[in-house]
C-alpha cells in the first residue's frame, strides 16, 4: 500500500529483521503485564504507520479458523486442579481460559506485526533486503544473487498470473462454464479449462522474460550494481535500539 509515514521510511532490511525479532520475543511474554505491554507497542507502531486499523483487522480474517481452533483447543484441553466444568476429556478451567486468551493475543500480535511489514514494504524491497541479509552466505558459495533474482521474479509474476487467471476465467465463463456449480467432481473438472491455458501462458511469459533479459545482456554473478540503494540511517538505528529496550522491559516484567 502506498504511504509516507515513518514506518514506510525505515530501511526494509531493518524492518524485516525487526519483524522477525519481534515475533521471537513475543514468546517471552507470559503474564498480563507483558502481553499488555507488547500489545500497546504494536498499536503504537500501527498508529505511527498512519494506516487505517481496518486493514490490520482484515489481515486477521484468513487466519480466523486457525485462531479459533487453537484457542478452543487450549481452552478445553488445559489440565487443571480446579475445573469449572468437566465433560469426558474436556475441561474448562480458569487457567485454560487465561492461556487461551494469551494465545489469542499472541496471534493478534504476530499477524499485526507481519501485516505492518507487508503493508509498508514493497515486495521488491523485501527481496532486496533478503539478498542483503543473506550476503554473508556468499562466503560458502551460496548463490545469493540468483536466489534473490528468483524471488523478485516470482513476486513479479504474482499479479501477472492473477490478471491472467481472471482473464481466462472470464473467457471460459463467456463460453458457458459455471464455476462453483454442481458436484465436487464437476467443480474440479471446471478448473481444467483454466489451469491448462494458465500453464501455457506462464511458460510463454517465462520464456519471453528469459529472452528479454538475455537480449539486454543480463549475466548473473559478480559486479552487478544496484538500481535501488538501501541506506541505513539514524532512525533505523533508533528503531533497533527501541527493540533492545523493549526486550529489556519485557525481561523485567515477565514472571519467572
Amino acid at each position: 500500500m502506498p504511504g509516507d509515514s515513518l514506518i514506510y521510511k525505515l530501511d526494509p532490511r531493518g524492518k524485516f529483521l525487526i519483524t522477525f525479532y519481534f515475533i521471537g520475543i513475543v514468546f517471552l511474554a507470559n503474564n498480563v503485564a507483558s502481553y499488555g505491554f507488547l500489545l500497546l507497542f504494536v498499536l503504537f507502531a500501527v498508529y505511527l504507520s498512519k494506516i487505517n486499523l481496518g486493514f490490520f483487522l482484515k489481515g486477521l480474517r484468513p487466519m480466523f479458523w486457525l485462531i479459533l481452533f487453537t484457542v478452543l483447543l487450549q481452552m478445553f484441553f488445559t489440565p487443571s486442579e480446579h475445573p469449572i466444568w468437566n465433560f469426558g476429556v474436556l475441561t474448562l478451567s480458569k487457567e485454560g481460559m487465561v492461556i487461551s486468551a494469551y494465545i489469542f493475543v499472541r496471534f493478534v500480535l504476530i499477524i499485526f506485526v507481519s501485516t505492518l511489514l507487508t503493508l509498508t514494504t514493497t515486495p521488491i524491497e523485501i527481496s532486496d533486503s533478503i539478498e542483503s541479509i543473506l550476503k554473508p552466505l556468499k562466503a560458502i558459495k551460496f548463490p545469493v544473487t540468483q536466489i534473490a533474482l528468483m524471488l523478485s521474479i516470482a513476486l513479479r509474476f504474482v499479479p501477472l498470473l492473477i490478471d491472467e487467471t481472471t482473464k481466462i476465467m472470464d473467457a471460459q465463463r463467456a463460453r458457458g462454464v459455471d464455476f462453483g456449480e454442481g458436484g465436487l467432481i464437476k467443480r474440479i473438472k471446471s478448473f481444467v479449462p483454466i489451469l491448462i491455458p494458465l500453464f501455457v501462458s506462464s511458460f510463454s511469459i517465462a520464456y519471453d522474460l528469459a529472452i528479454a533479459m538475455e537480449s539486454r545482456g543480463y549475466r548473473d554473478g559478480e559486479g552487478r550494481s544496484k538500481y535501488r540503494m538501501l541506506k541505513w540511517e539514524m532512525r533505523d538505528t533508533v528503531a533497533a535500539i527501541v527493540m533492545i529496550v523493549i526486550t529489556g522491559i519485557l525481561l523485567m516484567i515477565r514472571s519467572y
Binding site: E164, A171, A174, G176, D178, V192, I196, P197, S201
Partner: peptide, 23 residues
C-alpha cells in the same frame, strides 16, 4: 450469478488475444 447461461449463449464474446483460452 445463477441462470446466466441463456444470456451468455446469446451474447458471444471474443476477448483480446482469445488464443489464450484454448485448452
Amino acid at each position: 450469478n445463477k441462470n446466466l447461461k441463456p444470456l451468455r449463449k446469446n451474447v458471444g464474446m471474443v476477448f483480446q488475444f482469445p488464443e489464450s483460452q484454448l485448452f
